[in-house]
């Protein structure tokens, strides 16, 4: 190896080291800024979870907005919560959007079941319909969220509104010549 090639290699290595150093510095700076932002947001999230009424701007991160929405839901301010959830669903964070919509549906359905237990059926019906819409939107964002499927199933059994299918269902038994299921053993046939 001549002195010239050695010198060239050293110069090349020096450039490489400088580039790596600059890249590492950029990564450290970027990640440090993220870390600081996240730590600050975490303080707000934990504060809201602890029940403190902390304000969150509409342009905040979806995770932060979700914490705010959940606080509003648990403190019986559904209209404000609906607004925050709308803001979250406009972001591209589908996981947060699904979580927020699911919690909103849960809040509404729980309220409706509470109303039903107090025999306030007329007040419960719109809540159930809204909850169904919330769950449906949840599943659009996260089709495999099993808890949303389960709770939507509960809501659908409270009010079944599949007019086109249920009508078919009612007509079908009349068309069948024999009502087979009445002959099945184990099914009660009525009073003795």
């Amino acid at each position: 190896m001549t002195a010239l090639t050695r010198w060239r290699t050293r110069r090349w290595l020096r450039m490489l080291a400088l580039v790596i150093l600059a890249g590492a510095a950029a990564v450290v700076t970027h990640q440090a800024i993220r870390l600081i932002t996240h730590m600050r947001d975490n303080r707000t999230i934990l504060g809201l979870a602890a029940g403190r009424d902390l304000a969150v701007a509409d342009d905040a991160a979806p995770r932060l907005l979700f914490a705010r929405a959940h606080f509003l839901m648990t403190h019986d301010q559904l209209n404000d919560a609906q607004h925050v959830v709308d803001v979250i669903t406009r972001s591209d964070d589908t996981a947060m959007a699904a979580a927020a919509l699911y919690d909103l549906g849960n809040t509404r359905l729980a309220r409706a079941i509470d109303l039903l237990e107090r025999m306030a059926v007329d007040a419960a019906i719109p809540e159930i319909r809204l909850a169904k819409e919330n769950y449906r939107a949840t599943l659009r964002h996260a089709p495999s969220l099993w808890d949303a499927k389960y709770n939507l199933d509960i809501a659908l059994r409270l009010i079944r509104d599949f007019p086109e299918i249920e009508r078919e269902l009612e007509e079908e038994p009349r068309q069948t010549p024999k009502r087979l299921w009445t002959d099945l053993p184990g099914l009660p046939k009525g009073l003795p």
Partner: peptide
């Protein structure tokens, strides 16, 4: 009903790991 999804703080581990490796 199935329970709510609770808000959770950001996991800080990815950033800390990235900073450590880059440093």
């Amino acid at each position: 009903l199935r329970p709510d999804i609770l808000p959770r703080p950001y996991p800080l581990r990815p950033e800390i790991e990235a900073i450590t490796v880059a440093a």
